[in-house]
Design a binder for these strands. Structure first.
Lengths: 182, 182
DNA sequence: TTGATTATATATCACTCTGATATACTTGTC
DNA sequence: GACAAGTATATCAGAGTGATATATAATCAA
């Protein structure tokens, strides 16, 4: 009976850290969960309604004066979250436009593939720098989060940086191979 | 005026290698493009119709006796494919259920995160072995593809293996950190 | 203080994509 | 010739994306 709508669990997980509005959840995804989990408004708001209907979350403050709707997780929601945490995890179906172009580029001139590899390299060099800056700001403790959570966030950033560097290395090696094969 | 439907380009790219039926395209995605590009029947067949309407591809043989519909790329389709090859490439929005669980697991007992990391490691160890086997079969030349295309496919497999190993390394390092932080 | 700009906030839409399933024909093989 | 496995097309509900509409609140310079 596991939900197929993965966004439900993402929202439950965020609300398990702190109560939030739909807007705040979106911001959390775009900052803390950047590179990990993407959410759209077009999915957040209907999902919040669905979760409310199923009593997994509840509306906390309905200030008449305010247009904000702040949600909090319920006991039922927490139970569902734990079930998901311990259940089997599925991999996202792959859709790498870069790799697709790379494979198809064998049908075209060499300049095509070199362009693709240069672009790909630039993307990951850029991302690596971004993650490194973020990691440093975590180490110097600007963000006010618990020690335990900072260990986890550092680990996530380390992973992102490692992945970027692996991709950059592969680009360099592959560009050499392609040039020599000409 | 670039198409948003990325599947169109994937299908054009496959049909640029060889004419194929919808079923054969699906098989190609599940084997050669495994780990790179996912396609579903529910998207392939409508997209083939759309591409035919737009004269990017054409029906090749309509054996009255057969139910097969084999498609080939047209000149217009090839032009569109080239445009896409040279256009800017977009990254797939991230949706890593493993990393999401990992981050959320800081709210739970340590055993949760260790389970997640063990599962994650197992997945990538498994995948790495699969890709290594495939790479060896490429090197011994069982598959009958051109020299040029085999260079590209080897590069893709090398990338997949490198990524798996980076992930495995990260799991090992992170499990150590989590255990020591207890 | 007013007017402009930016940030906050909810909501909806068309479209893309996923995964499952229905249906039917063909090809081995026991 | 029965039965399974593989080939093939098609459709559906629902998940997810990205863009946009709308409106209010905060900030800040002229």
């Amino acid at each position: 009976m596991a939900l197929k709508n993965k966004s439900m669990y993402a929202l439950l997980g965020v609300l398990n850290i702190t109560p939030a509005t739909g807007y705040e959840i979106k911001k959390y995804c775009d900052t803390v969960l950047a590179g990990i989990w993407n959410e759209n408004y077009g999915h957040i708001y209907p999902t919040l309604k669905k979760l409310t209907d199923e009593a997994m979350i509840e509306v906390l403050d309905t200030d008449e004066s305010s247009t904000k709707i702040r949600y909090g997780i319920t006991e039922k929601g927490k139970e569902e979250l734990v079930k998901w945490m311990l259940a089997e995890t599925t991999l996202q179906p792959a859709r790498s436009e870069y790799m697709l172009k790379f494979l198809f580029s064998s049908q075209f001139e060499t300049e095509y593939v070199l362009k693709i590899l240069r672009d790909y390299r630039a993307i990951y060099e850029n991302q690596r720098n971004k993650y490194q800056t973020f990691k440093k700001s975590l180490e110097t403790g600007i963000e006010e989060i618990t020690k335990k959570r900072s260990v986890y966030m550092t680990a996530v950033l380390t992973k992102a940086i490692m992945s970027c560097e692996t991709n950059i290395l592969w680009c360099d090696e592959t560009m050499d191979i392609i040039r020599n094969a000409e």
